[in-house]
Design a binder for these strands. Sequence first.
DNA 1: TTGCCACTGTGTCGTGAATACACTAACATT
DNA 2: AATGTTAGTGTATTCACGACACAGTGGCAA
Lengths: 229, 229
Amino acid sequence: MPYTYEYARAALAVDCVVFGLDDEDLKVMLIERGQPPFKGRWALPGGFVRLDETLFEAARRELEEETGLKRVFLEQLYTFGDVKRDPRERVVSVAYYALCNLRDHKVQGATDASAAAWFGLHDLPSLAFDHDEILRTAVERIRGKVRYVPIGFELLPRKFTLTQLQKMYEKILDRQLDKRNFRKKVLGMGILEETDEVQQDVAHRAARLYRFDELAYKRLVKQGFNFEL
Amino acid sequence: MPYTYEYARAALAVDCVVFGLDDEDLKVMLIERGQPPFKGRWALPGGFVRLDETLFEAARRELEEETGLKRVFLEQLYTFGDVKRDPRERVVSVAYYALCNLRDHKVQGATDASAAAWFGLHDLPSLAFDHDEILRTAVERIRGKVRYVPIGFELLPRKFTLTQLQKMYEKILDRQLDKRNFRKKVLGMGILEETDEVQQDVAHRAARLYRFDELAYKRLVKQGFNFEL
DNA sequence: TTGCCACTGTGTCGTGAATACACTAACATT
DNA sequence: AATGTTAGTGTATTCACGACACAGTGGCAA
């Protein structure tokens, strides 16, 4: 069933940079390509946009199809449109980035014969297409964004300790933070809700668990509040 | 000369939000549409992407064709891909925003029969397509960005007074700033070069002219410097 | 020439935020 | 009971931000 147009048209794709956090490192999910071009190379999950879905919907769909991830934070990153970025033909790709925590969303073997795996940011293979550049752009974006918008909470389980929160910031920003100053600051913002639970199954004093209080955050933003780590 | 594809394809367009600054207000350049749909309505300059040009090149080309603007600051904003954003068919638009100063770049009557004009941000007509939304997004973007990246200088002539600089920030941020604190801060950053010239043809004491020192800025950024107004 | 107008250009002080820094408390394990 | 491991806490110093007012300059008009 061919489609005909008066002018040549580019193909339109979406690609997703999925960040996940575990105890060691900030990770990215990659897919091993089962088809040429770049067969056998690692690439970002993604695919072509259908005409009856928005870009956001396409990104969400591809993410679920290729990695099994649902209901994760997903936001548009940048659109990559170099003429030769795909060797087959002109493909313009709208990149998205996603954040999720590795505990809740375990490595889903991908559905369509290709392998999916998490890679630490310091241990990446070279990627297919211009996906290295897309990934670099995504890392820059979250580094910038995490400092003044609380997107980082998407990477943690719903209840977390202050140490986990601090370690997350340290991994994203790639530098050490002072414990006391960090706690003072983050508690002072009034967007963390203290639960009456503590960590389980640790071989030392258990830390208190906190929850991100989205309502308090939104209230504060409305009053002209500035989250800034 | 028709082009045929196995799957249906969206058309791909670019749209540009061009900001300009004059003595009164922050302005945006709009084009009156000469063709349906939305004939007679105001819209952002833009058009379809050719297959042999990057997105950036397409934006620059359309900008020049429709408004006569060349060599202005131009940067990708966001990609708009709602299914029904164009009533004719599926069109995905990569939006760019541009900054220029109204002195150097006078209102070029548009080349192709449609009229081009500057509109103050507080005095906008309702726009064609989803261009209201694109424009809103662009305003948010420069408000956020101008505070920690010196893009604002693109809106001024190469040599400017500190008062002009301050007024620019006041118009973009839509609030008053204190003169002494502003000067202290902006001079303290060390990215302004004092010239030995002063304003001409003013009916009062002439102010000293400054120049943005891009090299100093880049040097400072490399050392981990934080421009932040 | 004098006065007036419009804008330029400058310093201080108080307050709040950011940083640097080290020890005791709690709990689990042996 | 002793040990190991992390949790949890306060202070002092420095730095940045914001609030605030007036004298100086130069053109212009009377």
